[in-house]
Simulated assay, not measured.
Amino acid sequence: MLTQVQKIFLLSSVLSLGFVLIILSSALYHNWLPLTVVLMFLLAPIPNSLCGNTQSEDFMSEAPDLLADFGRFLTSFLLTSGVALPVTFAHNGLIKIPAMIMSLAGGAIVYGSIVTFGAIFYEPEGY
């Protein structure tokens, strides 16, 4: 098993790999539009983490949790936008196809490492 420090080191290394891919997709092809992916994938986990902790006290209640659903909607909107922007830029000729692929791979690594960090260090409240 990995210690907490080793987990943080591993996740930060993977996160930096994602950022390097995104920055290289911009720098190698002299076009800085793929950097918009960074903003989308960094903002994507925020609505889910803010709105996901609104669980009802009554576990027998079947009322829908509208705030949690809204957080999931915003997260999926930002993830879809993070994928669609480079594809749209490449389709319109604003960036090249290899830059799109590197940007998408880097964005997936960034988002995956952020979600993994949240999953590893999440401690549910005990009763």
Rank of each mutant, 00 (worst) to 15 (best):
V83D: 13
L39K: 03
G82E: 01
L15Q: 06
V87D: 03
G52R: 10
T75W: 14
N92R: 14
I109C: 06
L35Q: 00
I101A: 12
F19D: 00
S25P: 02
L11M: 05
Q6A: 10
P124Q: 09
S12C: 04
L67Y: 10
F89Y: 15
P98S: 15
F121L: 14
I8K: 14
L15S: 05
M100W: 06
N92S: 15
L28M: 14
G18I: 09
L50R: 14
Y122S: 12
V110C: 06
S12T: 01
M60T: 15
G52V: 07
L66H: 15
H30L: 08
Q6E: 14
A68P: 01
S49M: 06
L10I: 09
F89Q: 13
G112M: 02
F73G: 01
A99S: 11
I22N: 08
S16Q: 08
L2A: 06
N92A: 13
L10C: 02
L39D: 01
A27V: 11
E125V: 08
S26R: 03
S12V: 02
I114M: 13
L33I: 04
V14A: 13
S16A: 14
H30F: 13
L42W: 00
L33N: 09
G93F: 10
L66R: 15
A68G: 07
S61N: 05
G106T: 05
P64R: 14
N53P: 02
A90D: 07
M102F: 15
F70C: 01
V5S: 05
D65C: 08
L2M: 08
M1H: 05
P124E: 11
P34T: 00
P45A: 09
E62W: 04
Y122L: 14
A44P: 05
G112Q: 01
V83N: 12
N53M: 15
S13L: 14
L15R: 03
L21W: 06
S49E: 05
A68T: 08
A27K: 11
Q6K: 09
G71Q: 06
D69P: 00
F77K: 04
S56L: 04
K7N: 11
M100S: 10
E57A: 10
I109V: 14
T80Y: 14
I109M: 03
F121R: 15
L28F: 15
I97V: 13
C51L: 14
L35V: 02
L67E: 10
T88G: 08
I22E: 10
M1V: 00
V83R: 08
Y127V: 11
R72H: 15
L10K: 01
M40S: 05
A90C: 10
P86Y: 09
L11H: 01
F19R: 01
A84V: 00
P86T: 02
G71W: 06
P34I: 00
L50M: 13
G107T: 02
Q4C: 04
A63S: 13
P47R: 12
S12A: 07
F77C: 07
L24Y: 03
A84F: 08
G18L: 10
G93N: 15
T75P: 07
I95P: 01
A84L: 12
F117R: 04
V110S: 02
A99C: 02
P86D: 13
I120Y: 15
S26K: 02
T116K: 08
